[in-house]
Protein backbone atom coordinates (compact mmCIF):
# COMPACT_ATOMS: atom_id res chain seq x y z
CA UNK A 1 0.00 0.00 0.00
CA UNK A 2 1.51 3.26 -1.05
CA UNK A 3 1.17 6.51 0.76
CA UNK A 4 0.28 9.74 -0.91
CA UNK A 5 3.29 12.04 -0.99
CA UNK A 6 1.61 15.34 -1.76
CA UNK A 7 -1.86 16.48 -1.01
CA UNK A 8 -3.83 18.92 -3.08
CA UNK A 9 -4.07 22.02 -0.93
CA UNK A 10 -6.70 24.51 -1.94
CA UNK A 11 -7.39 25.02 -5.61
CA UNK A 12 -10.24 23.62 -7.62
CA UNK A 13 -11.18 20.03 -6.72
CA UNK A 14 -10.37 17.37 -9.30
CA UNK A 15 -14.00 16.39 -9.92
CA UNK A 16 -14.84 19.92 -10.97
CA UNK A 17 -11.90 20.07 -13.39
CA UNK A 18 -12.85 16.68 -14.80
CA UNK A 19 -16.48 17.63 -15.45
CA UNK A 20 -15.51 21.01 -16.90
CA UNK A 21 -12.86 19.38 -19.09
CA UNK A 22 -15.19 16.65 -20.29
CA UNK A 23 -18.08 18.98 -21.11
CA UNK A 24 -15.79 21.60 -22.65
CA UNK A 25 -14.04 19.06 -24.87
CA UNK A 26 -17.27 17.48 -26.09
CA UNK A 27 -18.85 20.88 -26.78
CA UNK A 28 -15.79 22.02 -28.76
CA UNK A 29 -15.73 18.74 -30.71
CA UNK A 30 -19.41 19.05 -31.56
CA UNK A 31 -18.90 22.68 -32.60
CA UNK A 32 -16.62 21.41 -35.40
CA UNK A 33 -19.79 19.94 -36.94
CA UNK A 34 -20.54 23.57 -37.93
CA UNK A 35 -18.12 22.79 -40.76
CA UNK A 36 -20.56 20.20 -42.08
CA UNK A 37 -23.61 22.44 -41.56
CA UNK A 38 -22.10 25.46 -43.29
CA UNK A 39 -20.06 23.38 -45.77
CA UNK A 40 -16.79 25.17 -44.92
CA UNK A 41 -13.67 24.40 -42.90
CA UNK A 42 -13.35 27.66 -40.96
CA UNK A 43 -14.54 26.08 -37.70
CA UNK A 44 -11.62 23.64 -37.60
CA UNK A 45 -10.01 25.69 -34.84
CA UNK A 46 -12.63 24.37 -32.40
CA UNK A 47 -10.76 21.06 -32.67
CA UNK A 48 -7.66 22.79 -31.33
CA UNK A 49 -9.65 24.31 -28.45
CA UNK A 50 -10.96 20.80 -27.67
CA UNK A 51 -7.35 19.62 -27.49
CA UNK A 52 -6.41 22.39 -25.03
CA UNK A 53 -9.45 21.69 -22.83
CA UNK A 54 -8.82 17.95 -22.80
CA UNK A 55 -5.14 18.46 -21.99
CA UNK A 56 -5.96 20.67 -19.01
CA UNK A 57 -8.20 17.92 -17.63
CA UNK A 58 -5.58 15.26 -18.43
CA UNK A 59 -2.67 17.03 -16.82
CA UNK A 60 -4.61 17.40 -13.59
CA UNK A 61 -5.43 13.68 -13.71
CA UNK A 62 -1.70 12.99 -14.08
CA UNK A 63 -1.13 15.14 -11.01
CA UNK A 64 -3.65 13.07 -9.03
CA UNK A 65 -2.05 9.79 -10.17
CA UNK A 66 1.61 10.76 -9.94
CA UNK A 67 1.34 12.35 -6.50
CA UNK A 68 1.30 8.74 -5.24
CA UNK A 69 4.87 8.31 -6.45
CA UNK A 70 4.34 5.51 -8.97
CA UNK A 71 8.11 5.31 -9.49
CA UNK A 72 8.04 5.22 -13.27
CA UNK A 73 8.32 8.91 -14.03
CA UNK A 74 5.59 11.24 -15.13
CA UNK A 75 6.15 10.88 -18.93
CA UNK A 76 5.04 7.24 -18.87
CA UNK A 77 1.55 8.37 -17.83
CA UNK A 78 1.27 10.59 -20.93
CA UNK A 79 2.46 7.77 -23.17
CA UNK A 80 -0.07 5.22 -21.88
CA UNK A 81 -2.85 7.81 -22.19
CA UNK A 82 -2.30 8.29 -25.91
CA UNK A 83 -1.24 4.70 -26.56
CA UNK A 84 -4.58 3.45 -25.27
CA UNK A 85 -6.57 6.35 -26.73
CA UNK A 86 -5.49 6.10 -30.36
CA UNK A 87 -7.35 2.84 -31.12
CA UNK A 88 -10.56 4.00 -29.47
CA UNK A 89 -10.42 7.26 -31.40
CA UNK A 90 -9.95 5.61 -34.79
CA UNK A 91 -12.67 3.01 -34.19
CA UNK A 92 -15.10 5.77 -33.17
CA UNK A 93 -14.61 7.58 -36.49
CA UNK A 94 -16.23 4.67 -38.37
CA UNK A 95 -19.32 5.72 -40.36
CA UNK A 96 -21.73 3.48 -38.42
CA UNK A 97 -21.34 5.68 -35.33
CA UNK A 98 -22.18 8.86 -37.25
CA UNK A 99 -22.68 11.96 -35.13
CA UNK A 100 -22.05 10.01 -31.91
CA UNK A 101 -18.33 9.70 -32.71
CA UNK A 102 -16.99 11.79 -29.78
CA UNK A 103 -19.26 9.99 -27.29
CA UNK A 104 -18.28 6.58 -28.70
CA UNK A 105 -14.60 7.53 -28.48
CA UNK A 106 -15.10 8.61 -24.88
CA UNK A 107 -16.92 5.42 -23.85
CA UNK A 108 -14.58 3.06 -25.72
CA UNK A 109 -11.47 4.75 -24.34
CA UNK A 110 -12.94 4.68 -20.85
CA UNK A 111 -13.52 0.91 -21.15
CA UNK A 112 -9.94 0.33 -22.37
CA UNK A 113 -8.57 2.60 -19.64
CA UNK A 114 -10.66 0.88 -16.96
CA UNK A 115 -9.34 -2.56 -17.92
CA UNK A 116 -5.75 -1.24 -18.08
CA UNK A 117 -6.30 0.28 -14.64
CA UNK A 118 -7.56 -3.06 -13.31
CA UNK A 119 -4.52 -4.79 -14.83
CA UNK A 120 -2.08 -2.37 -13.20
CA UNK A 121 -3.77 -2.28 -9.84
CA UNK A 122 -4.63 -5.94 -9.36
CA UNK A 123 -2.60 -8.14 -11.71
CA UNK A 124 0.55 -6.02 -11.36
CA UNK A 125 -0.27 -5.39 -7.68
CA UNK A 126 0.28 -1.60 -7.79
CA UNK A 127 -2.46 -1.04 -5.15
CA UNK A 128 -2.74 2.69 -5.81
CA UNK A 129 -6.23 4.00 -4.94
CA UNK A 130 -6.44 6.51 -7.80
CA UNK A 131 -5.03 4.15 -10.44
CA UNK A 132 -8.18 2.72 -12.05
CA UNK A 133 -9.94 6.05 -12.22
CA UNK A 134 -6.87 7.93 -13.43
CA UNK A 135 -6.10 5.49 -16.25
CA UNK A 136 -9.78 5.53 -17.28
CA UNK A 137 -9.73 9.32 -17.46
CA UNK A 138 -6.40 9.47 -19.25
CA UNK A 139 -7.38 7.04 -22.00
CA UNK A 140 -10.49 9.20 -22.58
CA UNK A 141 -8.33 12.34 -22.68
CA UNK A 142 -5.96 10.68 -25.15
CA UNK A 143 -8.79 9.65 -27.47
CA UNK A 144 -10.58 13.03 -27.31
CA UNK A 145 -7.34 15.00 -27.83
CA UNK A 146 -6.48 12.95 -30.92
CA UNK A 147 -10.00 13.53 -32.20
CA UNK A 148 -9.49 17.25 -31.62
CA UNK A 149 -6.21 17.18 -33.56
CA UNK A 150 -7.97 15.31 -36.36
CA UNK A 151 -10.70 17.97 -36.49
CA UNK A 152 -8.12 20.77 -36.40
CA UNK A 153 -6.00 19.31 -39.22
CA UNK A 154 -8.68 17.89 -41.54
CA UNK A 155 -11.78 19.88 -40.57
CA UNK A 156 -13.71 16.84 -39.34
CA UNK A 157 -13.35 13.36 -37.96
CA UNK A 158 -15.06 10.90 -40.25
CA UNK A 159 -13.13 7.79 -41.28
CA UNK A 160 -13.38 8.79 -44.94
CA UNK A 161 -12.19 12.32 -44.17
CA UNK A 162 -9.20 11.06 -42.24
CA UNK A 163 -8.10 8.61 -44.89
CA UNK A 164 -8.79 10.51 -48.11
CA UNK A 165 -7.36 13.76 -49.37
CA UNK A 166 -7.18 15.54 -52.68
CA UNK A 167 -4.14 16.40 -54.74
CA UNK A 168 -3.82 18.69 -57.75
CA UNK A 169 -2.21 16.94 -60.66
CA UNK A 170 -1.86 18.73 -64.04
CA UNK A 171 -4.78 20.99 -63.23
CA UNK A 172 -7.03 18.12 -62.20
CA UNK A 173 -8.12 17.38 -58.65
CA UNK A 174 -7.52 13.74 -57.90
CA UNK A 175 -8.51 11.98 -54.70
CA UNK A 176 -5.55 10.43 -52.94
CA UNK A 177 -5.08 8.35 -49.81
CA UNK A 178 -1.48 9.45 -49.39
CA UNK A 179 -2.39 13.09 -48.69
CA UNK A 180 -4.49 12.49 -45.58
CA UNK A 181 -4.35 12.56 -41.79
CA UNK A 182 -3.62 8.85 -41.48
CA UNK A 183 -2.05 8.09 -44.83
CA UNK A 184 0.41 10.96 -44.52
CA UNK A 185 1.44 9.91 -41.02
CA UNK A 186 0.18 13.17 -39.47
CA UNK A 187 -1.51 11.03 -36.80
CA UNK A 188 1.93 10.09 -35.47
CA UNK A 189 2.90 13.75 -35.08
CA UNK A 190 -0.45 14.51 -33.41
CA UNK A 191 0.10 11.52 -31.10
CA UNK A 192 3.42 12.83 -29.78
CA UNK A 193 2.37 16.51 -29.78
CA UNK A 194 -0.41 15.52 -27.41
CA UNK A 195 1.58 13.00 -25.37
CA UNK A 196 4.34 15.51 -24.64
CA UNK A 197 1.93 18.36 -23.93
CA UNK A 198 -0.04 16.25 -21.43
CA UNK A 199 2.93 15.04 -19.36
CA UNK A 200 5.19 18.09 -19.42
CA UNK A 201 3.25 20.47 -17.13
CA UNK A 202 3.21 18.27 -14.04
CA UNK A 203 6.75 17.07 -14.76
CA UNK A 204 7.91 20.70 -14.85
CA UNK A 205 5.84 22.04 -11.94
CA UNK A 206 5.96 19.17 -9.40
CA UNK A 207 7.57 19.63 -6.05
CA UNK A 208 6.86 21.40 -2.80
CA UNK A 209 6.17 24.67 -4.65
CA UNK A 210 3.46 23.11 -6.82
CA UNK A 211 0.56 25.48 -7.51
CA UNK A 212 -2.54 24.34 -9.34
CA UNK A 213 -3.16 27.50 -11.36
CA UNK A 214 0.46 27.69 -12.51
CA UNK A 215 0.47 24.07 -13.70
CA UNK A 216 -2.85 24.40 -15.52
CA UNK A 217 -1.67 27.62 -17.19
CA UNK A 218 1.44 25.78 -18.38
CA UNK A 219 -0.81 23.02 -19.73
CA UNK A 220 -2.83 25.54 -21.69
CA UNK A 221 0.42 27.03 -22.99
CA UNK A 222 1.71 23.61 -24.08
CA UNK A 223 -1.67 22.86 -25.66
CA UNK A 224 -1.65 26.06 -27.71
CA UNK A 225 1.99 25.43 -28.70
CA UNK A 226 0.96 22.00 -30.04
CA UNK A 227 -2.00 23.69 -31.74
CA UNK A 228 0.37 26.08 -33.57
CA UNK A 229 2.27 23.12 -35.04
CA UNK A 230 -0.94 21.27 -35.89
CA UNK A 231 -2.40 24.42 -37.48
CA UNK A 232 0.67 24.69 -39.70
CA UNK A 233 0.23 21.06 -40.71
CA UNK A 234 -3.42 21.75 -41.52
CA UNK A 235 -2.38 23.96 -44.46
CA UNK A 236 -1.79 20.69 -46.36
CA UNK A 237 -5.33 19.38 -45.92
CA UNK A 238 -7.78 22.31 -45.52
CA UNK A 239 -8.17 25.64 -47.27
CA UNK A 240 -5.52 28.27 -46.51
CA UNK A 241 -8.06 30.70 -45.04
CA UNK A 242 -9.32 28.20 -42.48
CA UNK A 243 -5.78 27.16 -41.60
CA UNK A 244 -4.81 30.82 -41.08
CA UNK A 245 -7.78 31.28 -38.69
CA UNK A 246 -6.62 28.22 -36.69
CA UNK A 247 -3.06 29.52 -36.69
CA UNK A 248 -4.11 32.98 -35.47
CA UNK A 249 -6.28 31.48 -32.69
CA UNK A 250 -3.36 29.26 -31.66
CA UNK A 251 -0.78 32.07 -31.67
CA UNK A 252 -3.05 34.46 -29.73
CA UNK A 253 -3.87 31.75 -27.19
CA UNK A 254 -0.24 30.78 -26.84
CA UNK A 255 0.96 34.37 -26.39
CA UNK A 256 -1.70 35.03 -23.73
CA UNK A 257 -1.10 31.82 -21.76
CA UNK A 258 2.68 32.20 -22.03
CA UNK A 259 2.50 35.71 -20.58
CA UNK A 260 0.19 34.54 -17.82
CA UNK A 261 2.49 31.62 -17.05
CA UNK A 262 5.49 33.94 -16.73
CA UNK A 263 3.45 36.20 -14.39
CA UNK A 264 2.47 33.19 -12.24
CA UNK A 265 6.08 31.96 -12.20
CA UNK A 266 7.22 35.40 -11.03
CA UNK A 267 4.52 35.30 -8.34
CA UNK A 268 5.68 31.92 -7.01
CA UNK A 269 9.41 32.50 -7.36
CA UNK A 270 11.52 33.46 -4.33
CA UNK A 271 13.38 36.04 -6.38
CA UNK A 272 13.42 37.08 -10.01
CA UNK A 273 16.49 38.32 -11.87
CA UNK A 274 15.74 39.63 -15.34
CA UNK A 275 19.02 38.54 -16.88
CA UNK A 276 19.85 39.60 -20.42
CA UNK A 277 20.34 36.68 -22.76
CA UNK A 278 23.41 38.23 -24.42
CA UNK A 279 25.59 40.45 -22.19
CA UNK A 280 26.97 43.70 -23.64
CA UNK A 281 30.64 43.19 -24.29
CA UNK A 282 32.17 46.66 -24.02
CA UNK A 283 35.67 47.26 -25.26
CA UNK A 284 35.86 44.13 -27.38
Amino acid sequence: MSVKVEVIEGGIPHNKIMIAGLVGTLVCLYLTYLNVLTNTEVFAFFGGLAVVTALIWGSHTIKVLCSYGIGTGVPSAGMIAFGSGVMAMLLATKPIFGMAAPIVALVLAAIIGFILGYISNNILNMKIPAMVRALTEMAAVGALSLMGFAALITGGFTFAGLTTGTVNMLGMTVSSNQISFIGGGLIAVAFLLGAIAIQHPFNACLGPGWKQDRMLMLTAECGFLSMIVAAIMSFALISAGSAIISLIVAIVGWAYTYNQYICLSKRDAAAWLDAKPIPDMEGH
Partner: peptide, 20 residues
Protein backbone atom coordinates in the same frame (compact mmCIF):
# COMPACT_ATOMS: atom_id res chain seq x y z
CA UNK B 1 0.37 4.34 -41.24
CA UNK B 2 -2.51 2.82 -39.26
CA UNK B 3 -0.58 -0.39 -38.51
CA UNK B 4 2.46 1.69 -37.57
CA UNK B 5 0.66 4.02 -35.17
CA UNK B 6 -1.20 1.11 -33.55
CA UNK B 7 2.06 -0.80 -33.15
CA UNK B 8 3.55 2.29 -31.46
CA UNK B 9 0.48 2.65 -29.22
CA UNK B 10 0.52 -1.03 -28.22
CA UNK B 11 4.24 -0.83 -27.64
CA UNK B 12 3.88 2.12 -25.27
CA UNK B 13 0.99 0.50 -23.38
CA UNK B 14 2.98 -2.70 -22.84
CA UNK B 15 6.17 -0.86 -21.91
CA UNK B 16 4.40 1.34 -19.34
CA UNK B 17 2.57 -1.64 -17.80
CA UNK B 18 5.93 -3.38 -17.43
CA UNK B 19 7.33 -0.22 -15.89
CA UNK B 20 4.52 -0.38 -13.33
Amino acid sequence: AAAGIFAVGLFLVNAVLTAY
